[in-house]
Design a protein around this nucleic acid. Structure first.
Lengths: 145, 145
DNA sequence: ATTAGTTGTTACTTTAAAGATAACACCTAA
DNA sequence: TTAGGTGTTATCTTTAAAGTAACAACTAAT
């Protein structure tokens, strides 16, 4: 398949809402920043809303991040928008008659779970606030001659 | 896209070659254990060979794992077979005119790199030897009444 | 030498998940 | 009432992986 940009776009949306909170926050305006389309933006916003990270109102372009950005982790956003949380995938079609085929699925599931845990622990350590701060810092470095 | 099973299948192949070293090691035999096809098996074996993990000989079904399994990590295998090593992917099409769109790519690249590092560090800690040992242990637990 | 079986490689087809696009009911505010 | 927004769903397109097939090149046995 294509590689998923959902996490990247979801972070983008949340950062946009925080940084441009006094401007146009319509899905169309956000889509222009993401260089995508309003439909995709609204679908991602729906996922963020379901996860309790975003509050929206039908008819009005007034989305609001519900929690303090210091209290929203990259992991929260990842889990909100990725339908399949797994970074690695076991081949679940192997020959059970064989010593390898009959046991490797469970063996790998356990191994992959430990890799997943390591990745998620790092994702939990990164907050939306720190990402927004980083965006601002890069912007400042650009504009200073 | 489909989720990749390359890593899982590559581990399968290496474990199979180690466990069944005195039996038929043709790509056809291995493919039956993987429940896949010989072509795929040979393609993965080619990648493992390129990475220096496997030695093969044209015409004869006598593949050999080149290093001690205690010295081959899940990360080695991952890098051997995955064309794109990245677990997370930045959306590289964002509006540079926007504070968010113009900076989020670098911000996320840095964040994702730290997640990647955490995952890879865990992958490096898992050896082919430990995976094979786990397969054997599960097999033993099955057969003991 | 011939033959049967294997590897290495490449080209093509199929599959599945993501993203693009569009449509429309419903809501809000002017 | 109307203009413009959201929420949702359906359909098409794209793309990487996996499936399939073919065949030259190699090996070993007879």
């Amino acid at each position: 398949m294509r590689y998923s940009h959902k996490l990247s776009d979801a972070v983008h949306i949340l950062a946009y809402i925080e940084i441009y909170h006094d401007d146009d926050l319509s899905s169309t305006a956000i889509a222009e920043s993401v260089e995508s389309n309003p439909g995709l933006v609204r679908r991602l916003m729906a996922a963020l809303r379901t996860a309790g990270l975003l509050a929206t109102q039908r008819g009005t372009a007034t989305p609001e991040v519900t929690r303090d950005p210091t209290d929203i982790s990259l992991l929260d956003i990842y889990r909100a928008v990725e339908t399949d949380d797994n970074l690695l995938h076991v081949d679940d079609k192997t020959n059970p008659q064989c010593i390898v085929g009959g046991n490797i699925q469970e063996t790998l599931r356990e191994a992959y779970a430990s890799v997943q845990a390591a990745a998620e622990s790092q994702m939990a350590a990164i907050t939306l606030a720190s990402l927004i701060a980083d965006i601002w810092q890069r912007e400042r470095q650009k504009t200073q001659s």
